[in-house]
Design a protein around this nucleic acid. Sequence first.
RNA 1: GCCCGAGUGGCGGAAUUGGUAUACGCGCACGACUUAAAAUCGUGUCUCGUAAGGGAUGUGGGUUCGACCCCCACCUCGGGCACCA
Length: 935
Amino acid sequence: MKNYDHKKIEKKWQGVWEKSKIYEAKTGTKGKTFYGLIEFPYPSGAGLHVGHIRSNTAMDIITRKRRMEGYNVLYPIGWDAFGLPTENYAIKMGIEPAKVTKTNTDIFRKQLKSVGFGFDWSREINTTDPKYFKWTQWIFLQMYKKGLAYKHRTTINWCPKDMIGLANEEVVGGMCDRCGGPVIKKEKEQWMLAITKYADRLDKDLDQVNYLEKIKIQQRNWIGKSEGSEIEFTVKDSPEKIKIFTTRADTIFGATYVVLAPEHPLVNNFKLLITNWGDVEKYIKEVKDKPDIERTAEDKIKTGVELKGIKAINPANKEEISIWIADYVLATYGTGAVMAVPAHDERDFEFAKNFNLPIRRVVEPKTVYKEGDSAVREGLPFIRRDCVCAVVRNPKDNKYLCISWKDHEMHGLVTGGIEEGEDVVLAAKREVLEETGYKNLKLIKATDIAINTFFYHRVKKVNRHARFQYVMFDLIDEEQDIVDNAESSIHNVVWKTKEELKTYFSVAEGQFVVNFIDNSNFIHTDEGILHNSGGFTGLDSGEARVKITKSIGGKIVTKYKLRDWVFSRQRYWGEPIPIIHCDKCGYVPVPEKDLPVMLPKVKSYTPTDNGESPLAIISKWVNTKCPKCKGKAKRETDTMPNWAGSSWYFLRYADPKNNKEFASKKALKYWMKDGVDWYNGGMEHTTLHLLYSRFWHKFLYDLKLVPTSEPYMKRTSHGMILAEGGVKMSKSIGNTIDPKDIVISYGADTLRIYEMFIGPFDQSVAWSTESIIGSRRFLDKIWRLSSRIEKNSSPKELQNMLHKTIKKIGEDIEGMSFNTAISSMMIIVNEMEKATSVNEKDFKMFLQILAPFAPHITEEIWSSLGEKKSIHKSLWPKWDKRKIVDETITIGVQINGKVRAEITISKDMEEDDIKSLVLKDKKVLDWWDGWDGKD
RNA sequence: GCCCGAGUGGCGGAAUUGGUAUACGCGCACGACUUAAAAUCGUGUCUCGUAAGGGAUGUGGGUUCGACCCCCACCUCGGGCACCA
């Protein structure tokens, strides 16, 4: 028999498939459709990466299975070819970026074909093709017309040494990626896309799609929806009002100052009233010049300046409070101004401590007992009681006075109700004396800290709301009175160290103490019950927020962290933004008939030293006529980011050659009735590409140009392939693996099997060249097996196993558990090798389930067995229900949770019969005799 | 700091509505075939113990007849966000 010659076989079938066009998708044929999508690659000079193979193979397996299940399958491919690396290479080598792109895509295409992916190459697209980017520009213009594209003064990254604007990805840790020098900010007018107008829908519509949960979570966090209140603070002796945004309106009675972002426009309006304008101006300038790394440094001490001469009025309690500017308040979020509540916000607390600003606690923690004897009883009203909780320290050994109940496991501190006419200190002293006998206490502090507990009082049979105020004492001496018998019979007095307290208490007022004992920085940032809050005292935070906002004329609003998309790049290798600027008419869109706006040929691709794109110096290209008034006008010289072309490419695949539309409605409706059926890609694209493309798609949906409001029905993600040793593969370390080498030495099928077997698909895994041989051996075994199959039927056990395997492979592919799928195929191959005979029909079924994983070898064997049609056009085998039920089952017998024996039973045995069988088993009896009945 | 995810042999990993832990593969050891090597095939391979048996799924607790799986606390690693009020 011939050896398994992967080179010959793979070349042969790749040729046959290309000629017979078996992977080409015809639009409009009847039946079910399936659109499987992978992220189209950026054709870098480095060539195909093993990571590309991993995700492409996964979707290749899925689409091949769908094809065999009778779907009309679209599995397209293209090139996301605009971008920096190509441009930088072009600058360095002085070659046209378009030529670099052509060379790279040719290499990529050849490599992809050599791995045997079932792409429909007739639909290949390229974002740098004018026939493609004409429509990228067209979509931009539609956005412009709807007011979603606008120009806005904002900052760009600027390397003062290289005199060049940098993309965000060229700024690494605040430093220029090219020269290593610090990056500063430079202001420039930039094109922006108003993605924030879609923030709400981008968040809400995640409910409609089948994305991995972690992808949804990450997107939601990025969008950062948060509900809060907008509240106006009037300014004394001024008509101006400061509008703040807060999610914690319930804490407003604790707002002791107001902070504006240094860039806040109101600051200038107060100029004449401010008595320390010099300081203020100086601070604003400092902040502006500060590089981002410094401004966001983790351990940075909060800075700021008070606006002296003006005061804000707290609308809740009419108190006059100071106004500050500080860079810990962001101009770009909320209203750019906050009310500061140092008692309930970490940042405000830190700032207040630095500048000695007042701190007032207005929300107290709350604990509701939900389990055990003290669990609150439904339906009973709560009786409120003011209580004290005495924290008594013995300075001699630094231990704290605790109480332990005798009749049940309960550990706490000395507590008790405040009687008529008593103050907290008196009440606390009295309780200590009554419960423990200690009489000589030195008051350390009657704290402003309190806790509210809600529980069922077992003795008094009522639901109780107890508000414990903490009073701290030191013992002067250990002199004790005799404790009344009624008290001492209930509990013991115990002394515990601070460390022991952490685990000792069983009651909330005790557990809470460890938070603030010896911690002068204690603040309560969670919700709770209002205190010192006028008519709102006693309310829960949630209820109070709404009521307070309403009563002071505030508004409940929703804010997002998501910012509008900076769409301008001062670069050459991108789509020109199709806008003309005319002094008379302003910004005028390029008429649709003049699209695409082509890139001019230039001598140098280097960005200019004034922050403009290299296009700006091509006066022949820049100077043009205004489409409106026909007067002199200039072209926009900014180009689009490379996120633009990838924001709609999946639509173009449906109808890639269309000259009249980006894609016909008919084609879109045929392939994307429910959107892309399955989109697999990397987690690194979760927040940018995925969000951007969802935004563009929704926009086109609003124009009624696409059939669905969401582009992707299902989104999954693959893990990265790391180098051996678990570090990132990188050219500079020299630990990259070229898939080409593996294809040559082991074959594409082996590479595919190996990458699918390497580990769980969604997790990062380390490459191991040593382990590839296992996948090759697996295919070798199959090759050898193919020469000894016969017409005799396979043994029954083997048939059962085959049908179980068919079932499992189907399920595993759907769940992307490719590693376990291959494992179970290996198991059955091992069994077939051992079997006395392997039936041809059975073997063919096995080949069919393997075909999506290893398309070449299976096609070769399939055809050598006399099949005329491609295995990839055959029907996915059906497993037989009757054949997956075992005749006999071996089960373990556990005694006290340990497996002690194994018995074999037949599948239709009754439970009683099994029991008696078990009780007859010798091993079981041995263990049974030894059992003393106690376990 | 916050949000996700993961910790199982020498290595990649399998097993989760709680029911035989370590499937499959790599590596390693021994054996067969061979003049020899490669390839291939077979046997073994968590750990302590001669054995009977005991122990082990990051650590410590808990729930359960029974826990890799559920609960609580903690540690380590990976990813994302990071002054978002």
